[in-house]
Structures are given as structure tokens and as C-alpha cells.
């Protein structure tokens, strides 16, 4: 089967690099699936999971604040933070989730910290989801 090279890079270093059969993820305009030979494309990503199909298995990577750059033979995901399922610190994500929820209860909805807490909550939930799917 044809494969496409995927690399996930963050400011703290490369996170993932491999050849996969399909990349699917959530871009800001909606769900997106990429197969080998896709036309060059750039799209911003939502906070969410990147699913990589490799030899019939699914691998999950949690990304936030990211971009997807597609070339015919290569997909690059540029994210401000990204973790593979096994790298996720579940404890930390749980703590972050609680903290964010607490903050959202304290702040008024139009406050800038509220938006920030909302994003933090999204990131925490995303991490937890990604880490769990691996355990299943």
C-alpha cells in the first residue's frame, strides 16, 4: 500500500516521524483526511487528535495550536504542542482540567481569562481522550 511521510514538529523538538497510509484530523473548517498524493495544502488545525493509520493500526497524537502542511509525498504538522498517546501525562492533564473548570466557574464569560481557561480545558480534554483511546 502507498504510504505518505508524516512528521509532527513542535518548538520543543520533533515528536513523531513515520510513514503512514492515511492521516485524518480536524482542521478549523472541518474533518480532513489525507491520503498519499494529495495536492499541496495548508490548513490550521483545531485542538484535537491527529489519527494516523499505519499498517492497519490507528495511532493517536494530541495537538494544539497547529497547522497542517501537505505535499504530495509528505505531511508536516506544525504544532505549538503535541504528544503521542503514550507520552501524555494523564495526571497532569487531569489536574489541568480541574484547574480550568475551577477558573471558568470563577470568571465571567466575557472575561479574557475565561476564554483562556476554555482553551486550557479543551487541551486537557483532548489529551485525556487521546491517552484513553490507546488504552482501549
Amino acid at each position: 500500500m502507498k504510504t505518505i511521510k508524516v512528521s509532527v514538529v513542535t518548538p520543543d523538538g520533533p515528536v513523531y516521524e513515520s510513514d503512514v497510509e492515511m492521516v485524518s484530523t480536524k482542521a478549523q473548517s472541518g474533518e480532513l483526511g489525507i491520503l498519499p498524493g494529495h495536492i499541496p495544502m495548508v490548513a490550521p488545525l483545531q485542538i484535537g487528535a491527529v489519527r494516523l493509520k499505519k499498517e492497519g493500526n490507528m495511532e493517536f497524537i494530541a495537538v494544539s495550536g497547529g497547522f497542517l502542511e501537505v505535499r504530495p509525498d509528505q505531511v508536516t504538522i506544525l504544532a505549538q504542542s503535541a504528544e503521542t498517546a503514550s507520552e501524555i501525562d494523564v495526571e497532569r492533564a487531569l489536574r489541568a482540567k480541574e484547574r480550568a473548570e475551577q477558573r471558568m466557574r470563577d470568571q465571567k464569560a466575557e472575561h479574557i481569562d475565561f476564554r483562556r481557561a476554555e482553551l486550557a480545558l479543551q487541551r486537557a480534554i483532548n489529551r485525556l481522550a487521546v491517552s484513553e483511546r490507546r488504552m482501549l
Binding site: 482542521a27 478549523q28 473548517s29 480532513l32 495536492i39 499541496p40 495544502m41 495548508v42 490548513a43 501537505v70
Partner: peptide
Amino acid sequence: SYEFEPSAEEI
């Protein structure tokens, strides 16, 4: 030259 999803400005 890339395709932009949704548009160059928004990216």
C-alpha cells in the same frame, strides 16, 4: 503554491 483551507487570509 498551496491550496488554502479555508483561505490564505484566514491562515
